Amino acid sequence: MKFIKKSYYYFFYKIYRSIEYTSELSGGKFLTFYKAGLVMLALEAWIFFSLLAYYKIYTKISIQLLISMPIVYIPAIIIYVFNYFTLDYKDNWRQFNAEFANYSKRKNRIGGWIVFGIILLIVSNLIFSFYLMSQIDWSQYR
């Protein structure tokens, strides 16, 4: 469990550092923590959307999703609360960021490639799930 927690914070750290770096290049780093948090929320939401798309493909049930439906707002609330308690509450991320900043350059470079690979996997998985949904003729299913 500790490994998963530390991995999550490292994932956030690499996103935070990359946003901090690109913000410096483009004229100023402000609200970096919130930008990184937004990226984390987006990636988690994309994972949820992928799972939902695969569910629709597997069951062949065509459903319209609205924000007022429990299948949408309950996971959204869970994701938001999870991020709040892991990142915002008591600023736990700061101590982990300080720890990860002390890692060797080689270790951080390898970790950066792993994080980039995971992000690429999440995005490509979402695109692939939407592609598979587009291949189904939904007119014959309810």
Rank of each mutant, 00 (worst) to 15 (best):
I74M: 11
L65T: 05
L52S: 11
E99T: 07
I63W: 00
Y84D: 14
Y21I: 05
L126E: 02
E20F: 00
L51G: 12
E44D: 08
Y34K: 00
L25E: 01
I74E: 03
V115F: 09
L25G: 02
Y10L: 08
T32S: 00
V72L: 11
W93L: 03
I136W: 10
I67S: 15
R109G: 00
P75Q: 11
I61A: 09
F96T: 07
G27I: 09
Y16A: 01
K35N: 01
G112H: 04
K107H: 10
G28T: 09
M133Y: 06
E99P: 03
Y21K: 11
G37N: 14
I78F: 15
F82H: 08
F33S: 01
F3R: 13
S62M: 01
A45H: 06
I4P: 07
F11G: 14
D88W: 02
R17N: 10
Y141K: 00
T32M: 06
F82Y: 15
N83Q: 11
M40I: 09
Y58E: 13
Q140Y: 12
Y103V: 00
L52W: 06
S18Y: 03
F82A: 07
D91L: 07
K5L: 13
S62H: 04
M133W: 10
G111R: 03
M1T: 07
I110A: 11
S23I: 13
E99Q: 03
A76T: 12
D91S: 10
V81D: 15
K29Q: 10
V39I: 13
L65I: 14
L66D: 15
N102H: 06
L132S: 14
L132H: 05
D137Y: 02
E20G: 02
L38G: 15
W138R: 12
W138S: 03
T86M: 08
F100C: 01
K5E: 15
S18P: 05
I118V: 13
Q64M: 07
